[in-house]
Simulated scan of single mutants.
Amino acid sequence: MEEIAFYGSVVIGMIFMSTGWSNFKKLEEHTGIIMAYKILPSRMASVFAKVDVWFQLLVSVLLLLGLFRQAALGIVTVLLLLYATAISVNMWRGRREISCGCGGVMGDHHLSWSLVVRNVLLAFVSGWLITVPVSLGCLDAVLAGAEWSEVLSIQVLQLHLVALLTLMTCTTAMKLYEVWRRMDEMNKGMLEMVRRG
């Protein structure tokens, strides 16, 4: 169970690192997306966008190092539920054309209920991970008195690589699906033109 929990924490850490770095590089665009949600006043939306990016980067580093792991997972859970709520509010308002602002390996998509489900599922996983104690690959264990050799092993490297490969596979699958969807839309458009003309 510890290996699965460690793997899950690393995957979530990598997701948030990718998203945080992407949003940091495009901070103005990210701020614009947060403003487009029209939930917070402009000034608060601008502050939230910056704080959001820094929290994404902070929790990713903490999760990848295994430092203050439970607190980092708690923050991740809250952030994911906030994102799901913001998307839901705009979906109920009929505002689906907005970019989700996810970035990184999660990609940028128009708002949809599937994004709400994805964020809620990730929040559930993150919340569950809080309950599973992990010492494998965690600096928390070293700070608690464990030997480095007990915490770091070839298994830690293997699990990091498996997590990276998992994200790369998911990202590739999402990109291929997007290409297929666009080609399908083009084909339908061309068939419609042929029928009319």
Results as ranks from 00 to 15, higher is better:
129 L>W: 07
165 L>F: 15
161 L>W: 13
155 Q>G: 08
160 H>L: 07
141 A>W: 03
174 M>S: 14
149 S>C: 01
183 M>I: 13
185 E>D: 13
146 A>E: 10
146 A>T: 02
162 V>T: 12
146 A>V: 00
129 L>D: 10
166 T>R: 02
167 L>G: 05
135 S>A: 12
131 T>C: 06
166 T>Q: 08
142 V>G: 01
140 D>H: 05
140 D>Y: 02
129 L>S: 06
171 T>F: 14
134 V>A: 08
167 L>E: 04
171 T>W: 13
181 R>M: 12
171 T>C: 11
153 S>D: 00
147 E>T: 07
162 V>E: 00
181 R>D: 13
163 A>T: 07
185 E>C: 05
149 S>Y: 01
160 H>C: 07
149 S>F: 00
173 A>S: 13
167 L>D: 09
144 A>I: 00
174 M>A: 15
174 M>W: 08
173 A>I: 11
176 L>Y: 10
182 R>V: 11
139 L>S: 02
165 L>P: 01
132 V>G: 04
169 T>G: 14
166 T>D: 05
168 M>P: 00
148 W>F: 14
128 W>A: 09
154 I>F: 14
128 W>T: 13
180 W>I: 04
178 E>G: 10
159 L>I: 11
137 G>F: 07
178 E>Y: 01
176 L>H: 09
177 Y>D: 06
185 E>W: 02
135 S>E: 09
138 C>N: 10
185 E>R: 15
132 V>W: 06
127 G>A: 06
185 E>M: 11
143 L>H: 07
151 V>Q: 01
136 L>V: 11
163 A>Q: 01
159 L>D: 01
184 D>R: 15
144 A>T: 02
124 F>G: 12
163 A>V: 08
133 P>M: 05
177 Y>C: 03
141 A>K: 03
